[in-house]
Design a protein around this nucleic acid. Structure first.
Lengths: 352, 352
DNA sequence: CGGAATCGTCGAAGCGTTTCGACGAAGCGT
DNA sequence: ACGCTTCGTCGAAACGCTTCGACGATTCCG
């Protein structure tokens, strides 16, 4: 493995000159630069990452901290990752994904203190996320995908849940639905302070109230069985329901199965909208789901770009940005067949 | 940030002594060790990963190369990752996941040549995988999850597709099914040399032939639509089919949808077995799928352990191991309702 | 009881970069 | 033609750790 010394010798220049060619820190004449580049090519030289990291005190490695449970990564999260990886690679950084769970706080502390990561992006952020504290103490620049409860002094990019829910509700109300149930994540998830679950809950209440409608929310376990149970609960609580809005990518398949089981058809009897969903998942269902499509890779890219700005950055201005999901109408929503309960016999279109 | 120097000064020993305490390379008296450990604790010392890597020429970082397409990671792949991460962490190594796709061969070459990875585990291996060549040239120890066509000199751990298919077919034949269609990945995937698709194809032909049955294989795009199309093709090619064996986790939902659409019930009209599937995914469907459950995290763990053995290892003996998937019977398989075509009127159980 | 092996520790030489200060050579305005 | 920047290059000192050789102090064996 060739070192910088070898290159310098072959090119008949000093080691520092080679370094300047590589980093661009100081001006180098074209003639010298060419000599050096030729030597590098001939020796197939690759800088040693460790040495570079030690000397420059920058590893050129960015971490993407991504808790991994056994459920796997949804297409949505995967899009964050690929977006982030592309952005990092474009800037000459490596992006490493670290499957550190919430429990491995000591692991994280170690990782951060070892000066191996120039900065990190945090995924799956809780409202009160210990990892933020640990990383700040360790002095590691960080950007969140998601938000903690108190975002002061923090950079983040997140989905605009308020607007997303508002649009989803507006879509259903626009079709004439009056009884809409929101199937959220589980009660335990809500209690644990999972931001998206809490924010969509509040946004749903607000949006429904704004339309003069009664907001009904049902928590569901992240499983098909949870979805089935949630739908049963929904019918118990709101027998006249004609639409389901679901946040829970896993439960939604149970919901669909249970609807079929009850002899109800989608979308004629019940419309279904899936929130924060990738097209791939939406197409899995039959009929394909009308969904709020997540901004996907853009979130990852923006997070990395903000992080890089922090690293180079003189200023410590914070990047705080919300992106809405876009409504994509597919086959799971339609005008309700059953009349709205509070306006029997009225024409199905134009309600709201 | 405290350095080893600070620790040494505080403990009144030399820097090398501190290093020996840390690495255990040489014997240290209990008294000295205690002094040093106390000093480290007091200063909250954490070794600098870059410096350590430079001096020792070992980064203590293992890479898990994991092409990420937009479909996301299935629960199966996620299990590999968590298994590998746990094993690496237990051995004091970091595991970084690198989403390098097949196209980024230069990226990979750079990564490998920068001496940043002590070794790598490759996922989603193709029969002719360029990445193997690149890594071998770069002299990076590697272990595969999956197999190339020519495995000589290579360490790998993979699913035993032959046995898995044999068991799946035996299960269906045991129930009395005679006309079984195998829905594989797409023709393009087969053509690209994706090992699991090819191996299961051959294994299916072998297993069916052994039972004296006609093997029918249908390729399907990795989408619900692909699954629907494949089922249509299957009925065209084998109208009397009573069972579907599916490799394609994505297409299977389309298959189920299409069956329902045709008024056929699972499992009474058609039995369905899903191959290399995690319990979580199997439970998504209604009814839950009888599936060949993948060995999951064990694969990841074994791969890392083999890799670590290579690193420490004097011997360069290769680790080559196959693990079968286990049959888990759920609600999607049953005795066929329709009589087997070549034995009209015979009792449904006991065929095969 | 003497020489050899072992134990515990130290100092110093790297590991392969970056980066700082220095310095001759050009280029500038006057 | 004069000092003054700017340009292009060099040598050397870090960066924080591991590891090698050395060496006094024990311990062991015959």
């Amino acid at each position: 493995m060739a070192t910088m010394h070898d290159v310098a010798r072959l090119a008949r220049v000093s080691v520092s000159t080679v370094s300047y060619v590589l980093t661009g820190t100081r001006p180098i004449s074209q003639a010298t630069r060419d000599k050096v580049l030729a030597a590098m090519a001939e020796l197939d030289y690759q800088p040693n990452a460790m040495a570079r990291g030690l000397a420059s005190r920058r590893s050129r490695i960015l971490g993407l901290l991504m808790p991994m449970d056994e459920r796997g990564l949804g297409a949505t999260e995967t899009a964050f990752v690929t977006g982030a990886a592309a952005a990092a690679s474009a800037a000459g950084y490596h992006l490493v994904l670290s499957p550190v769970g919430g429990g491995d706080l000591d692991d994280l502390r170690r990782l951060a203190s070892q000066r191996m990561l120039d900065g990190v992006v945090l995924m799956e952020v809780q409202l009160a996320d210990q990892r933020v504290t640990v990383l700040r103490e360790a002095g590691v620049p960080l950007v969140l995908i998601g938000r903690t409860g108190d975002t002061s002094g923090l950079s983040y990019v997140d989905i605009d849940f308020e607007q997303t829910v508002r649009e989803a509700v507006a879509h259903l109300v626009g079709l004439g639905h009056r009884s809409i149930v929101y199937v959220n994540h589980s009660a335990a998830t809500l209690a644990s302070g999972y931001g998206p679950a809490l924010r969509t809950r509040d946004a749903f209440v607000a949006a429904m109230t704004a339309h003069g409608l009664e907001p009904v929310m049902i928590p569901a376990e992240d499983s098909a069985a949870g979805g089935r149970a949630a739908l049963a609960a929904a019918f118990a609580q709101a027998p006249e329901l004609t639409a389901v809005l679901a946040m829970n990518e896993t439960a939604i398949f149970g919901i669909l199965g249970e609807l079929t089981g009850r002899g109800l058809s989608v979308p004629d009897d019940v419309s279904v909208v899936s929130m924060v969903t990738s097209p791939q998942v939406a197409e899995l269902a039959t009929p394909a789901l009308t969904a709020m499509t997540s901004p996907g890779s853009a979130l990852g890219r923006i997070a990395i770009e903000a992080l890089l700005r922090h690293l180079d950055g003189a200023g410590d201005e914070r990047h705080q940005q919300l992106l809405p999901c876009a409504l994509e109408t597919r086959g799971s929503t339609a005008v309700p067949r059953r009349p709205a309960p509070d306006a029997p016999g009225r024409p199905p279109i134009g309600g709201g």
